[in-house]
Design a protein around this nucleic acid. Structure first.
Lengths: 359, 359
DNA sequence: GTCCTTAATGTAAGCGCTTACATTTTGAGT
DNA sequence: ACTCAAAATGTAAGCGCTTACATTAAGGAC
């Protein structure tokens, strides 16, 4: 069924059918109804490829993420999809597996398909720094979602998730509770870990407090299921050897959960003997007996903001100056942190550890 | 940049440029190189809308799921995306929020965009039974992913996840361990709960065992985060009132986790005092101190199979008879189930409960 | 050199829409 | 009944590609 068939059957020209479909009030109610009847009877749907060819709009937005099985990304994506649904846009979704060359390839593909706009979550540093995105943004609306403060000043539409603020809030809270030291548990490699570690270091140095590298614990894989046992192992060892202070921040809930398991296994009570804070506020935070305090990155707000940014760019077409929206993470306080017990030594304290406390 | 610009600059006709891009060996190596040079220099990418208009192929597949923030669906989706990437197809993703009318609308939209194929996960009963999918399948490759045994015989491409088998395996295992009764914990409404409850009932009746409706526990919401506390509450009450037998199957890991929490809180040991089996084998199964045995639905295999089915349908175009692939869930055994302790009464046993055990 | 087959390229007709512009209808104003 | 602007519709030119068919170039065989 093509528009011509409908036109023939309704006894009008293709232009009129097109008008009925796109600008109904340009056509006389009577004719309109006649055309619509035929359209309905044949369940005719215009070919959007042909339409897109003419209008240069595909009603499509390309969304690029690192991994599909990642609650963080998918919450953002869901929020966007909701917004786009209302705007009549469809979403092309692709995962880069954190490979910069795939990132480029997919963006090219989006371009080839004439996506009206593109959203990239946690883009690779590489493609950003060589101006690839800046160039791309001149061709069509592009919005970046990330936590990289360095990018913030670039003239690009972006949603900046201020993880440094989140980190500050964690430190404020824990230290406010009376903890003298806060250990950090992170994955070996990954931008988000670096951001958090750096933010913690900054917080400490701003207060003239020492950064003690031995309080940063690294596990090989912080992102997948394996992070839980790995974290459990690392934290278990630290407890046994008395290397753990009274508070621990884990860079995500997976690791936090592992830490909780290790502590429980070692006979430590949470939060009395050890305070633990997680990050991302995923289902894991609320799944166990003890409910983890965690940093909520507000993914839904992030997704909504990104969608809104793109939509407005689509609308204003051209002259509009790029905007950057900053999202403030929130520390969700539950039951996994408390003041360090004054009457108790830090978990399995050793003399050397006690000394370190005053370092 | 259009193909014509490239042609002009390379001093050939548009047809030749098109050939260079689509059938390189139809053109003399020397000309080919000249054209490619221009293409590269301008980073020219053919407009796939125009191409699709001619070829009647969009290199796109539409994927429809109920919710984007659902680990189950996303694992399937990730497996598909991997396969489609290799095949040069892009994925349009949309969520129906379990609304049949949205399901239809999106499928129409996929059709309008001339998606080469469509995959629907857990389609609504409604759209299936009124022949909507059957009709749709005549127009373009369509594959359904579901657990509905009733559909299995339909002449449609489908991936059938045999949850009944999974349920049987759970019952075999638990009863094999020596449990006399197995409680079921489910959400109030939802097809997947019904399937499991029915499979359990069937298993029991095949063995002449009584179905005791009071051993089926329902909570209002089994799908979201709230399921954990709701399950905890329900199971906690059942324990207190001695209504819980020595084994419990939860329809998903959320509820299983809630059950574990309730048992722990009540001072019960798992698995010694209470055996618990979860379902879906998500991260929740391995996140806590006690590792939950759970039914793995093999989502990755499901996704891969669905993609393969679609790809083969795309390839054979037409005459190919529809196939249905059956996926066998697997019971992953961890630490949450054990034989009921012979020396101990069932948890908080009451006389009436003890009587029921022999019913 | 001529003839003929095959390889290489060009020409032009669409694919199914939208839309600028041209033409016809309509109806209020006189 | 006649004008004329406004409303309704039609005509046809593309949008940027692919591809059937036509044409030209290349290279053996004689």
């Amino acid at each position: 069924m093509r528009i011509e068939d409908i036109a023939l059957e309704a006894g009008v020209s293709t232009a009129t059918v097109s008008r009925v479909l796109n600008n109904p009030d340009l056509v006389k109610p009577q004719t309109r109804e006649r055309v619509l009847e035929v359209v309905r009877r044949h369940e005719y749907t215009p070919n959007s490829l042909a339409r897109g060819l003419m209008t240069k709009k595909s009603k499509t937005v390309g969304v690029l993420i690192i991994s599909i099985t990642n609650a963080y990304y998918m919450e953002i994506t869901e929020a966007m999809q909701r917004r786009f649904r209302d705007a009549g846009l469809m979403m092309l979704l692709a995962a880069t597996d954190d490979r910069p060359e795939l990132e480029r390839a997919y963006i090219r593909e989006f371009a080839a398909r004439r996506a009206d706009g593109i959203i990239v979550i946690d883009a690779s540093e590489e493609n950003f720094s060589d101006g690839f995105f800046a160039r791309e943004a001149t061709r069509r609306p592009l919005v970046l979602i990330h936590s990289n403060a360095a990018i913030t000043a670039s003239p690009l539409d972006q949603v900046y998730v201020d993880q440094r603020l989140g980190m500050r809030r964690v430190m404020d809270y824990l230290v406010g509770l009376g903890h003298r030291e806060v250990a950090l548990l992170r994955g070996e490699r990954g931008f988000s870990y670096d951001v958090k570690e750096a933010a913690r270091a900054k917080w400490l140095s701003e207060r003239g407090l020492p950064e003690r590298p031995e309080l940063v614990f690294r596990i090989a894989d912080g992102n997948t299921e394996d992070a839980i046992p790995l974290a459990e192992e690392a934290v278990g060892a630290a407890i046994r050897e008395g290397r753990l202070p009274s508070a621990l921040f884990a860079c995500n809930d997976l690791m936090a959960r592992g830490a909780v398991n290790a502590a429980t296994k070692a006979g430590l009570r949470i939060p009395e003997d050890l305070s633990i804070i997680g990050h991302d506020d995923t289902i894991l935070a609320v799944s166990g007996r003890i409910q983890l305090s965690s940093v909520d990155l507000k993914m839904r707000s992030v997704g909504a903001a990104a969608a809104e940014l793109l939509l407005s760019a689509l609308h204003d077409e051209g002259s509009r100056p790029p905007r950057t929206v900053r999202i403030e993470p929130e520390l969700v306080i539950r039951d996994s942190a408390a003041p360090p017990s004054p009457h108790t030594a830090p978990p399995h304290a050793t003399p050397s550890h006690a000394t370190n406390l005053h370092a």
